[in-house]
């Protein structure tokens, strides 16, 4: 299991324990929102990033409404009080999600070794009111912490946010909802590669800050593994054998896409040291390669989606040619 997106992992945990298929929820996560600061620094998290649409689709697919218990208009202290009260009264079928700074819990594995690491986890009370259980589906971690230490990790200026939902009634997603969700999340362009290109161009003349500007690229790049869930879902729904088919070849391409971002990061660091235009050109060639590769992946996915719709008897035929997708990708009819 590969880490893809922490909030998605949290809300999918209850789906995985049900009869519903969690994989459609990963549609579009390959292009999930990230931030590019005014200094052209790439960031996997920013206060302005809204998860509203993502959680609306969760309701449409699985029938579960996700509520925000965190109120950004109130103080952090007030929100912590709300959380503590909720933890005392919550029912077992209710799930609590909170954003905390994982870097404040050094005993937790911090694979990216970032000094600040905003991250969504789930919390459960224990028999001891001073201890809370932390469930971190994204990193497949589960363990108990002193309540005060978790509260300290939440009480950081770099993090804010939290949700709750009742997962007792999970609806099986219907084909129409799955199709609509797929279409809503498919972008013709590739926002991450485009953003990396903007970062490179912005820092090209004075590249000393370029390595720091791309430091969080690996955290965002792994979202591309969401493509694997989509391929596996469509292949299975189409009755295609994953082992005997070209499924592994597409997984290899997805892994190549992720790994090539590491090559770009490496070249960017190299360019920041050499300032050699040949190294800059090398980066640009890799960016072109990324675009071509992701074009191939999206095109194949659209073809699979079209076959899926035909098999499911969808009356509205989809265009199978990726080139005909509108820029917004909101409608393929």
């Amino acid at each position: 299991m590969i880490k893809v997106h922490c909030l998605v992992s949290c809300v999918c945990e209850v789906i995985k324990r049900s009869d519903a298929d969690h994989r459609p929820y990963y549609f579009g996560i390959w292009d999930a929102d990230f931030a590019l600061t005014s200094e052209f620094v790439l960031s996997h998290h920013a206060a302005h990033i809204s998860h509203e649409a993502m959680l609306d689709w969760y309701r449409l697919l699985y029938g579960i409404t996700v509520h925000s218990w965190y109120d950004p208009s109130r103080s952090k202290a007030a929100n912590l009080t709300v959380l503590e009260q909720f933890m005392k009264t919550k029912r077992p079928e209710q799930s609590v999600i909170v954003m905390l700074d994982l870097a404040r819990l050094p005993e937790r594995e911090n694979k990216f070794h970032h000094e600040v690491f905003p991250h969504y986890v789930m919390l459960e009370p224990t028999d001891d009111e001073d201890r809370w259980r932390m469930l971190d589906p994204d990193f497949r971690y589960e363990g108990e912490f002193d309540r005060t230490r978790i509260l300290q990790a939440i009480d950081q200026p770099t993090v804010a946010g939290g949700f709750w939902f009742d997962g007792s009634q999970v609806k099986l997603p219907d084909t129409e909802a799955v199709s609509s969700y797929f279409m809503s999340g498919l972008k013709r362009h590739h926002p991450l590669t485009e953003a990396v290109e903007q970062v490179i161009l912005h820092h090209a003349a004075r590249p000393e800050k370029l390595p720091e500007a791309l430091k969080q690229l690996p955290v965002i790049a792994i979202r591309k593994y969401a493509y694997e869930h989509a391929f596996a879902y469509f292949y299975e729904r189409l009755g295609i054998d994953l082992v005997a088919s070209d499924f592994d070849d597409w997984c290899d391409k997805i892994e190549q896409l992720v790994n090539q971002y590491t090559i770009i990061q490496h070249r960017a660091i190299k360019y920041s040291m050499t300032r050699d235009r040949a190294d800059l050109q090398d980066i640009q060639q890799w960016l072109v390669a990324q675009t071509t590769l992701e074009d191939d992946i999206k095109r194949q996915l659209v073809d699979l989606f079209s076959r899926f719709q035909q098999k499911e008897g969808e009356t509205d035929a989809t265009r199978t040619l990726y080139d005909q997708l509108p820029a917004s990708s909101t409608v393929i009819r």
Partner: peptide
């Protein structure tokens, strides 16, 4: 990474130094 606590960016910086 896990034993020497070297994050991916620092490792890439090390590699570039070894090359140059």
């Amino acid at each position: 990474r896990d034993d020497l606590q070297l994050d991916s960016m620092r490792l890439l910086q090390l590699l570039v130094h070894l090359e140059l």
